[in-house]
Design a protein around this nucleic acid. Sequence first.
DNA 1: CTCAATTTAATTGTATACGATTAATTTTCT
DNA 2: AGAAAATTAATCGTATACAATTAAATTGAG
Lengths: 167, 167
Amino acid sequence: MSIDNDGKFKKANFTHIIEDDIINEDEMLKLDNQLCFALYVCSKEIIRKYKPILEPLGLTYTGYITLLALWERDEVTVKDLGNRLYLDSGTLTPLLKKLESQGYIERIRSTLDERNVLIKLTTAGRDLKTKAYRIPRDLICSANIEATDAKSLLSGLHQFMEQIIDK
Amino acid sequence: MSIDNDGKFKKANFTHIIEDDIINEDEMLKLDNQLCFALYVCSKEIIRKYKPILEPLGLTYTGYITLLALWERDEVTVKDLGNRLYLDSGTLTPLLKKLESQGYIERIRSTLDERNVLIKLTTAGRDLKTKAYRIPRDLICSANIEATDAKSLLSGLHQFMEQIIDK
DNA sequence: CTCAATTTAATTGTATACGATTAATTTTCT
DNA sequence: AGAAAATTAATCGTATACAATTAAATTGAG
């Protein structure tokens, strides 16, 4: 328990000691101190900036990251895709049906294990990657992102995710 | 334009020069290099961890951050709340109606300017703050978050948001 | 003073997102 | 082999989220 300037005990359940700072509980409830809120706003705002860039390709942000995953590894199950994208079948099934209707992927029930549906890029889906090369650049430009800041933030996030995921 | 080891020009539209690294466009399209995807996954996973903590109070994450905003500044318009939460009236109106039905807030059409609807905490809404004090601690605990990491990530995010918002 | 422009919240339509459940299939246990 | 358990994708219900539009009120220009 800590003792403040005038020598009185602080009530333990009203203070946290983090490094050198004492942060009281009112501070902890301020929006500016919410890590999750900052993450949430940041991701939403960037996704908004993706919108006009992805729109010419007929893609939403979720469709885009699904294709990113498939360009890395193709002919995978819905389950595998969900693990990589942190999405479940409730989200993926309608999304994949749309990408199929757009001609970017095929959904093929596996014959080896009929529980599995394999997701496979079509030629059009594979070819789309060529057009996608400009997307990261266009985003960095339109969102005014500094590459160095983005890189350090990204590595901080990866480290953080290691901590919190599956705990 | 850069020249590589064997003296040939690299195709400018296939390379980026960032600091000392040359990152080719295939790398740029990998999920692990997507800052937005990391933000998006991180915020979703943390919001998932909030769920069981907020559920006893009858709150969703959006309801929670709305109350956080109101505990800081009360009797505000929907517009003001939207500016602070980065949400528009399409999201807020139904959310605020629900918080009203739960007895946490009142929605009062302003008499000074009848376009405005003022959002005002009820006594129950103000009293809920006492129960909310434990939420940040509970989350940090259940999500296994290191306070020092969270603090540095948060400051990195605030700095980043300065860059990208309203550009 | 009056009409056009602006502002505000609500509404509508579309797209996510996830928990829970379901149906079909496969695996495991005995 | 055969029943129980586990796995997979799909479905259902609920909650976000946002762009675009609408309706009402206020402001501003002439």
